[in-house]
């Protein structure tokens, strides 16, 4: 089955990004496809490569980058939400790309299920 995922909250502040990541990991382990993860609202903050958590904490941004690379997951950051919050191509982490809201709608159209993680 093809899944689309929406992440509405930033890393560390809220559990949404962790829950979404663990869901995606479990889904690919079961043989499903994560067709796209769309980052919206403060969720765009998951995409900055300037993130530096303490060493004993999980690195949420790198974790997304790795999962995307291993399973060819399309990580899309909403351009309007990103520009509002200072996320640009210059500080974008590996595996993420910035694009329009149409990519969220397309995920709704092209996948079998959409799951939203937020506040």
């Amino acid at each position: 089955m093809k899944f689309g995922i929406v992440v509405n909250e930033g890393p560390y502040q809220h559990q949404a990004s962790d829950s979404a990541y663990l869901f995606c990991k479990a889904a690919v382990e079961k043989g499903h496809e994560i067709w796209r993860v769309f980052f919206y609202h403060d969720g765009v903050n998951n995409a900055t490569r300037l993130t530096e958590p303490p060493q004993d904490d999980r690195h949420i941004v790198i974790r997304w980058s790795k999962l995307a690379e291993e399973h060819k997951i399309d990580l899309v950051v909403c351009v309007a939400a990103a520009l509002r919050r200072g996320i640009q191509d210059e500080n974008l982490a590996h595996g993420f790309r910035i694009s329009g809201l149409g990519q969220l709608v397309e995920a709704g159209i092209q996948t079998d299920r959409v799951v939203v993680f937020g506040d």
Binding site: N8, Y40, H41, A80, A81, G100, L101, G102, L104, V105, E106, G108, I109
Partner: peptide, 19 residues
């Protein structure tokens, strides 16, 4: 919070996709 405004932005885009 900004949720209502950003939700409305998605609604307008979705309509443009003829859904």
């Amino acid at each position: 919070t900004i949720y209502a405004l950003e939700s409305l932005e998605v609604v307008l885009i979705t309509a443009a996709f003829d859904q």
